[in-house]
């Protein structure tokens, strides 16, 4: 039950923070918080594969980047008024967030399906390295994709729109991102309790037993991997909209590493673990980054200490072990 209390505090903080920042007239802090919320969403996606499914993917930046490029490409065509393709039917670019999200989710889910099908033939270290390699493959592909900016990436001049909201106002965009995060968390919570989630959990702990009762663990894991990739892809589209910029760096393997860091820092297979991890990371980045240019040294040292001595992450530390 303590975990419930920790989650409630986190939730209250996420809602209260922009109100406070608005009152204190610190719009930059709202943008920072938006960044944290979007990264949290990406990490929530990863947590489904990594925490509940036990699939250590070191290539989730690929899905994050695919989401980002989905936004970048659609908005780029909308701002240049050049259709995406003219044959066999005309597809125009768009500045509408819901359409962009749909494309981002479908594209990253398809990519996760392909990558998952090949990668799940392997387990353990091989799985880690193959997901890493697929991530690198797409990374180098975006670098050589000169039609959409190549290595330099591309800028989108105006943030995309959402019906009924002015997304250019930081606090409204924050609210939109937070609403999506909460929606996905609710889905995640329902999923964990559903038969699918229970079977997935069992498949992580003992694939043989799951197989004995007549369930194919591979298909469960593939489904979880696709869902995981789709959520991370959606986060990528939002991240690109936040920065109004996409570049291959969204697909870099450091990004994949950081997503894992969010999950572990917060607590693996905890509903709010990735949220706590992402908030902690962004806060550290902001605070330590102000103290020293070399703040990654401290981040690295802190991370080492967490891995070596404080297993269970922040939520595990605050809420105790899982029942």
């Amino acid at each position: 039950m303590r975990e419930g209390a920790v989650n409630a505090v986190l939730l209250a903080g996420l809602v209260a923070f922009p109100i406070w920042a608005q009152a204190a007239d610190e719009p930059f802090l709202i943008t920072l918080a938006t960044r944290a919320v979007i990264l949290a969403l990406a990490a929530v996606g990863l947590n489904i594969a990594l925490g509940w499914g036990g699939m250590v993917s070191l290539g989730h930046a690929a899905f994050f980047g695919i989401g980002g490029y989905a936004m970048g490409i659609l908005a780029f065509h909308a701002q240049t008024y050049a259709p995406l393709m003219e044959w066999p039917f005309v597809i125009e670019g768009t500045k509408s967030m819901p359409v962009i999200w749909l494309v981002a989710v479908v594209a990253s889910a398809l990519a996760a399906l392909g990558i998952g099908l090949l990668s799940l033939r392997t387990t353990g270290v091989y799985f880690i390295m193959i997901t890493l390699a697929f991530g690198q493959m797409l990374y180098y592909f975006t670098i050589s994709w000169t039609a959409y900016g190549g290595e330099d990436g591309m800028s989108i001049y105006v943030r995309n729109g959402f019906p009924g909201l002015n997304t250019l106002v930081p606090v409204e965009f924050y609210g939109l991102c937070l609403a999506i995060l909460l929606l996905v968390l609710a889905l995640n919570a329902a999923l964990v309790r559903a038969p699918f989630g229970l079977a997935l959990n069992a498949a992580r702990q003992s694939p043989e037993r799951v197989r004995t009762v007549g369930i194919d663990p591979g298909r469960l894991q593939l489904a979880a991997f696709v869902l995981s990739g789709a959520i991370t892809g959606l986060a990528g589209a939002l991240f690109a909209d936040l920065n109004r910029f996409v570049s291959p760096s969204m697909l870099s393997w450091q990004m994949s590493g950081e997503l894992i860091v969010f999950v572990i820092l917060g607590g693996t297979a905890r509903l709010f673990g990735p949220v706590a991890g992402a908030i902690l990371f962004v806060a550290l980045e902001h605070l330590l980054g102000g103290v020293s240019d070399y703040w990654h040294v401290f981040l690295g040292a802190l991370l080492l200490l967490v891995v070596l001595f404080a297993r269970g992450g922040l939520v595990g530390f605050l809420a105790g072990r899982v029942r």
């Binding site: 250590v56 590493g257 860091v261 572990i264 990654h296 981040l299 690295g300 991370l303 080492l304 891995v307």
Partner: peptide
């Protein structure tokens, strides 16, 4: 993975 990733940062 995580601990050695932390070592890279350091």
């Amino acid at each position: 993975v995580l601990a050695t990733f932390a070592l890279i940062l350091v």
